[in-house]
Structure formats: C-alpha cells, structure tokens
Simulated scan of single mutants.
Amino acid sequence: MKPTHKLLFVLCSMLVLGFMYYSSGKLHLFVWGQKSRKYPLYDKQGFLLQLDIKLPPELMYKYGNLSEGACKPGYAAAKMSTIYPKFVKPAPMFLDRNFKRLGKVNNYLPPFGFKTQERVIDGILMETKYYGLGDKLDSLTCKRCIIVGNGGILANKSLGSKIDGYDVVVRLNEAPVSGYSKDVGTKTTMRITYPEGAIQKPENYEKGSLFVFSAFKPLDFKWLRHMVFKEKLRGVEGFWKSVAHAVPREASEMRILNPYFIQEAAFQFIGLPFNNGVMGKGNIPTLGTVAITMALHNCDEVAVAGFGYDMSMPHAPLHYYETVKMSAIKESWTHNISKEKEFLRKLVKANVITDLTRGI
C-alpha cells in the first residue's frame, strides 16, 4: 500500500471512529435525557408532583369501554396508585373478631390504633356480631360512595337527589338531614362519629343507617361499650364537651371504624407530626379526611360534597345547618386544616375523588 493510501486509510478510520464516538455520545445524552424526563418527581409524602398523569393504557382501555355513567370497578384505587405508588388497597372498613391481626394498628394507642383496648373491643364485637355494610351492599361488585361534609358550601346547591343516587352515603357527626334534604339528600348508609360528636337527641337519628364509631382516646371505647350494652352512663369526666347518653341503635347496627385510616391519613397522606404515635398538637386529621381515606380503600368511585373552608369569606356560613360564620374558625390544637386541604386538593386535581361542591 502506497504511503498516501496508508495516510488516507488512517485518516478515514479516525474520522469514522470520531463520528461513531460523537454519535454514541449524542445518543447517550439523548437517551439519558429521555430517561430523566420519564423519572417521576415526588413530594415528601410520596405523591407525584405531576398530578394530571394518565392511567396506564390497559386501564384507560378498560374504563373507556364502559357505558356512560356505569360504575368503574377499582377506579379510585387505580388513580390513587398512579399518583401515590405506595398505596395498597386492602384495608377493612370496620374491625371484626380478627382485629388483633391488624399489624399496623395493634401497637398504637387510640386514635392511631387500639393498644390497651383489646378486651373492651372484643367484648363489643361479640355483641355487635356484624362487621360489614350489610348483605346488599357487600355483594355489590362496584360501589359508588359519597362523603357528605358539613360545610356551609352545601347550602342552596340542590344536590340532594344526586347525593341519594350513590350506593353508599357517609355522613359525619351530628349534621342533620331532616329539613335540609333538598341540599343534602335523605339517604344515610352510615354516620361516622365519636362521643362528643354523636347526635344527642334520639329522634334525630335516621332509620336504617349504621352507627360507625371512631375512637380518638381510650375513654371513647368505654363510652361505646355503654352505648352497645344500653348501660347507664355514669360520669362524663375526660370528654371535652357533653356526650350522648344513649344511641337508638341495636348492637347489630353498630360498627367500629378501622383506626388504620386515621393513622394513614395523618402520617402518610398529610404528613402530620408523628409524635411517637401519640395524639399531640396538630397531628389528628379531621373525621372528613378519615372518611375519605376509608373510602379510597373500600369504594370503587369516591365523591365528596360539603368540604372546604373559604377563609376569604368570613361572613359565609361555616355549616349548612347553623348560622355560625366562617370567621368563627380558630386555630385548631388538634387539626392542621391547611395541610389537610393540600392533601385533598391533590386527590381532586388527579381525579381520584370528585368534589361536587368544588370547595376543596
């Protein structure tokens, strides 16, 4: 080979190698760039920062092929898992006789568990005997649930018939139905409450609804035992306000809400202070958020109504059933309303839940 040919060969080889090196570098950068864009970014609670992400194609196909208005099986959990990969659906709604096997709550005192109250709970559950929503609802392959909050935003919205159209209607504490049915509906599947929040006048209880108890302190279980066994309540020391002395429900119509939902809402979803797993300043979620957390695990579609405090409207009604104004809200020792609202907004923005009154 002539020297000039050798030189050309070497030069060509170098050019080819240089081009390959350059191309591979560009390719590497491109692929790396693509990958970096695909890696999702999460907030400190583990939620995606980009909340409008779509469902996987197979789920889009599944739900897209359902007829309009049909219940979407597993939809809430699928959406929740998309924005919060740590979400695990199985979590029983109520405690049953196997409650001691629930590992995530048996080492915590109320409200985050049932430690020290096992004997009392076991006695109550032996008396109640039933641990589900009832045969008709438990047999549904797809359940649409709505949590009805107590907010004044419900007033004059005429959502009553729409609320009654859900399979499961959850109400909170003493919020009345009678006299407000046009806005809040007439149907009550369950009413979740605690001693200080329970309806005190027996005539105000709706027939056919479940009385669902949520404990926030050990003393609450003692109160529930008196209600279940129809015992006279002696002494009310330890409660922060007056409590009901009787609940007009048979034991078979009473349930104990799984305390895991309080724990999960507080520490995983909202990011409230752990405080060694003990009730403390600003680490208790509101009952409304606890109910929504419960529904995410046990309902296929979840809606809410009557949620959201608009502090920019101090003269607006705080609750739909009374004249107390928004300005009456003071800083809460137990709740962190702003952090809670931030969590609920994530669920609404990602279409995990539907907000009928658009107050979140």
Results as ranks from 00 to 15, higher is better:
K86N: 12
K38F: 08
K54H: 13
I83T: 10
F99V: 13
N98M: 01
L102S: 08
G33M: 05
G18H: 04
G64I: 03
L51K: 12
G46V: 09
Y75I: 11
K72G: 00
M93E: 00
K72Q: 13
K100P: 00
M14I: 13
A77M: 04
P73Y: 15
K100I: 14
C71A: 07
H28K: 06
G25K: 04
G25Y: 13
L29E: 14
L49R: 02
D43V: 04
G25Q: 07
M80Y: 09
E58R: 12
E58S: 11
K35A: 00
K44R: 07
F87M: 06
E58T: 10
G69M: 02
F99G: 09
G64W: 02
K38M: 09
V16N: 01
M80S: 06
Y22A: 14
S24C: 07
P73R: 15
Y39T: 03
Q45M: 10
V16E: 05
P85M: 15
K79M: 11
Y21E: 09
H28I: 01
G46R: 05
L59M: 15
W32L: 05
F99R: 11
G25T: 08
K72H: 08
K35N: 06
K38P: 02
A70C: 12
A76L: 08
L51D: 10
K79I: 06
G64V: 00
D96Q: 14
Y42A: 07
D52I: 07
M80I: 12
L29T: 06
P57K: 15
F99T: 12
G25A: 05
K100N: 13
L48W: 01
Y42F: 15
Y63T: 00
K89D: 00
C71G: 02
L41I: 11
Q50G: 03
Q45W: 06
K62M: 13
L48R: 14
V16R: 03
Y84W: 15
F87I: 06
I53Q: 09
F99K: 09
D96K: 12
L66P: 09
F19R: 01
Y61E: 08
G25R: 08
M93Q: 03
S67D: 12
A77F: 10
I83M: 10
E58V: 07
G46I: 08
S36F: 03
L17K: 02
G18K: 00
L27E: 03
A91N: 04
M93Y: 01
A76Y: 02
R101N: 15
Y61V: 00
L51P: 11
N98Y: 07
K72S: 08
